[in-house]
Protein backbone atom coordinates (compact mmCIF):
# COMPACT_ATOMS: atom_id res chain seq x y z
CA UNK A 1 0.00 0.00 0.00
CA UNK A 2 2.66 2.49 1.04
CA UNK A 3 4.83 1.42 -1.87
CA UNK A 4 2.05 2.08 -4.32
CA UNK A 5 1.36 5.42 -2.68
CA UNK A 6 5.01 6.34 -2.88
CA UNK A 7 5.22 5.70 -6.60
CA UNK A 8 2.00 7.57 -7.14
CA UNK A 9 3.28 10.61 -5.26
CA UNK A 10 6.61 10.39 -7.04
CA UNK A 11 5.00 10.24 -10.46
CA UNK A 12 2.78 13.24 -9.67
CA UNK A 13 5.73 15.12 -8.30
CA UNK A 14 7.86 14.54 -11.38
CA UNK A 15 4.94 15.32 -13.63
CA UNK A 16 4.14 18.62 -11.98
CA UNK A 17 7.81 19.58 -11.90
CA UNK A 18 8.01 18.97 -15.63
CA UNK A 19 4.87 21.01 -16.08
CA UNK A 20 6.42 23.88 -14.12
CA UNK A 21 9.43 23.91 -16.35
CA UNK A 22 7.85 23.30 -19.71
CA UNK A 23 4.63 25.28 -19.63
CA UNK A 24 4.61 28.88 -20.81
CA UNK A 25 2.27 30.53 -18.37
CA UNK A 26 3.93 31.47 -15.06
CA UNK A 27 0.58 31.37 -13.27
CA UNK A 28 0.04 27.71 -14.12
CA UNK A 29 3.63 27.00 -13.18
CA UNK A 30 3.14 28.33 -9.68
CA UNK A 31 0.00 26.31 -9.13
CA UNK A 32 1.65 23.21 -10.50
CA UNK A 33 4.56 23.68 -8.18
CA UNK A 34 2.27 23.99 -5.17
CA UNK A 35 0.69 20.72 -6.19
CA UNK A 36 4.11 19.13 -6.66
CA UNK A 37 5.24 20.24 -3.21
CA UNK A 38 2.11 18.79 -1.68
CA UNK A 39 3.06 15.47 -3.24
CA UNK A 40 6.57 15.84 -1.89
CA UNK A 41 5.10 16.38 1.55
CA UNK A 42 3.24 13.13 1.02
CA UNK A 43 6.52 11.36 0.31
CA UNK A 44 7.98 12.87 3.46
CA UNK A 45 5.08 11.46 5.47
CA UNK A 46 5.69 8.04 3.93
CA UNK A 47 9.33 8.35 4.94
CA UNK A 48 8.18 8.99 8.53
CA UNK A 49 9.48 12.57 8.48
CA UNK A 50 6.24 14.01 9.80
CA UNK A 51 7.70 17.24 11.06
CA UNK A 52 9.42 17.99 7.77
CA UNK A 53 6.31 17.01 5.87
CA UNK A 54 4.26 19.47 7.88
CA UNK A 55 6.89 22.14 7.34
CA UNK A 56 6.83 21.41 3.64
CA UNK A 57 3.15 22.14 3.47
CA UNK A 58 3.29 25.12 5.78
CA UNK A 59 6.46 26.85 4.66
CA UNK A 60 6.89 25.81 1.08
CA UNK A 61 3.47 25.27 -0.29
CA UNK A 62 2.00 27.80 2.11
CA UNK A 63 4.36 30.70 2.50
CA UNK A 64 6.96 30.58 -0.22
CA UNK A 65 4.69 29.65 -3.07
CA UNK A 66 2.13 32.26 -2.02
CA UNK A 67 4.92 34.79 -2.26
CA UNK A 68 5.61 33.58 -5.78
CA UNK A 69 1.94 33.84 -6.60
CA UNK A 70 1.83 37.39 -5.35
CA UNK A 71 4.82 38.41 -7.39
CA UNK A 72 3.43 36.83 -10.55
CA UNK A 73 0.17 38.66 -10.04
CA UNK A 74 1.87 41.88 -9.03
CA UNK A 75 4.09 41.99 -12.07
CA UNK A 76 1.38 40.73 -14.37
CA UNK A 77 3.86 38.53 -16.18
CA UNK A 78 2.68 37.53 -19.59
CA UNK A 79 3.19 34.03 -20.90
CA UNK A 80 6.45 33.68 -22.76
CA UNK A 81 6.37 34.30 -26.44
CA UNK A 82 7.75 31.39 -28.42
CA UNK A 83 11.41 32.03 -28.68
CA UNK A 84 13.13 32.36 -31.96
CA UNK A 85 16.40 33.53 -33.32
CA UNK A 86 19.92 33.16 -32.16
CA UNK A 87 19.58 32.15 -28.54
CA UNK A 88 17.87 29.08 -29.86
CA UNK A 89 21.18 27.57 -30.82
CA UNK A 90 22.25 27.44 -27.20
CA UNK A 91 19.40 25.14 -26.38
CA UNK A 92 20.92 22.20 -28.17
CA UNK A 93 24.01 22.01 -26.13
CA UNK A 94 22.07 22.91 -23.00
CA UNK A 95 19.89 19.89 -23.66
CA UNK A 96 22.88 17.66 -24.26
CA UNK A 97 24.40 18.90 -21.00
CA UNK A 98 21.26 18.14 -19.02
CA UNK A 99 20.86 14.69 -20.48
CA UNK A 100 24.49 13.93 -19.82
CA UNK A 101 24.11 15.21 -16.29
CA UNK A 102 21.06 13.09 -15.57
CA UNK A 103 22.72 10.06 -17.12
CA UNK A 104 25.80 10.41 -14.99
CA UNK A 105 23.71 11.09 -11.88
CA UNK A 106 21.70 7.96 -12.37
CA UNK A 107 24.88 6.10 -13.21
CA UNK A 108 26.48 7.13 -9.98
CA UNK A 109 23.42 6.48 -7.80
CA UNK A 110 23.69 2.69 -7.48
CA UNK A 111 27.35 2.91 -6.59
CA UNK A 112 26.79 5.66 -4.08
CA UNK A 113 23.87 3.86 -2.49
CA UNK A 114 25.92 0.70 -2.26
CA UNK A 115 28.64 2.68 -0.56
CA UNK A 116 26.20 4.12 1.94
CA UNK A 117 24.37 0.90 2.61
CA UNK A 118 27.66 -0.87 3.24
CA UNK A 119 27.59 0.85 6.59
CA UNK A 120 24.94 -0.92 8.63
CA UNK A 121 22.00 1.34 9.34
CA UNK A 122 21.33 1.85 13.01
CA UNK A 123 17.62 2.15 13.52
CA UNK A 124 16.35 4.47 16.12
CA UNK A 125 12.71 4.70 16.79
CA UNK A 126 10.49 7.67 16.22
CA UNK A 127 12.55 9.69 13.81
CA UNK A 128 9.49 11.57 12.74
CA UNK A 129 8.90 12.77 16.25
CA UNK A 130 8.93 16.56 16.47
CA UNK A 131 10.48 16.26 19.88
CA UNK A 132 13.48 14.42 18.50
CA UNK A 133 14.03 16.94 15.73
CA UNK A 134 13.62 19.80 18.18
CA UNK A 135 16.08 18.26 20.58
CA UNK A 136 18.71 17.98 17.86
CA UNK A 137 18.00 21.51 16.73
CA UNK A 138 18.39 23.05 20.14
CA UNK A 139 21.37 21.04 21.31
CA UNK A 140 23.89 19.97 18.71
CA UNK A 141 22.66 22.43 16.08
CA UNK A 142 22.07 25.41 18.35
CA UNK A 143 24.61 27.73 16.77
CA UNK A 144 23.50 27.08 13.16
CA UNK A 145 19.95 27.58 14.36
CA UNK A 146 20.77 30.99 15.77
CA UNK A 147 22.67 31.88 12.63
CA UNK A 148 19.65 30.88 10.58
CA UNK A 149 17.54 33.24 12.66
CA UNK A 150 20.04 36.01 12.02
CA UNK A 151 19.99 35.18 8.33
CA UNK A 152 16.24 35.53 8.21
CA UNK A 153 16.46 38.91 9.91
CA UNK A 154 19.07 40.07 7.44
CA UNK A 155 16.95 38.82 4.55
CA UNK A 156 13.96 40.67 5.96
CA UNK A 157 15.85 43.95 6.18
CA UNK A 158 17.37 43.40 2.77
CA UNK A 159 13.99 42.77 1.22
CA UNK A 160 12.51 45.90 2.69
CA UNK A 161 15.51 47.84 1.50
CA UNK A 162 15.30 46.44 -2.02
CA UNK A 163 11.59 46.72 -2.45
CA UNK A 164 11.35 50.29 -1.23
CA UNK A 165 11.08 52.74 -4.05
CA UNK A 166 13.24 55.33 -2.47
CA UNK A 167 15.78 54.95 0.27
Amino acid sequence: MTTALFYLFAALLIGSALFVVLNRNPMYSVVALVFGFANLAGIYFLLEAYFIGALQVLVYAGAIMVLFLFVVMLLDVKPDKPRRGLVHLDRWWFAILVVLFLGLLLGIVPGAVRLITSVPAGHEADIGNVERVGQALFTSYLLPFEVAALLLTVALIGTVFLAKRKI
Binding site: D90, W93, F94, V98, L100, F101, L104, I108
Partner: peptide
Protein backbone atom coordinates in the same frame (compact mmCIF):
# COMPACT_ATOMS: atom_id res chain seq x y z
CA UNK B 1 25.65 25.86 -18.09
CA UNK B 2 29.34 26.23 -17.42
CA UNK B 3 28.83 25.27 -13.81
CA UNK B 4 26.87 22.28 -14.94
CA UNK B 5 29.63 21.39 -17.37
CA UNK B 6 32.11 21.47 -14.53
CA UNK B 7 29.89 19.30 -12.38
CA UNK B 8 29.58 16.83 -15.23
CA UNK B 9 33.33 16.62 -15.60
CA UNK B 10 33.75 15.98 -11.88
CA UNK B 11 31.00 13.38 -11.92
Amino acid sequence: AFILGGVIVIM
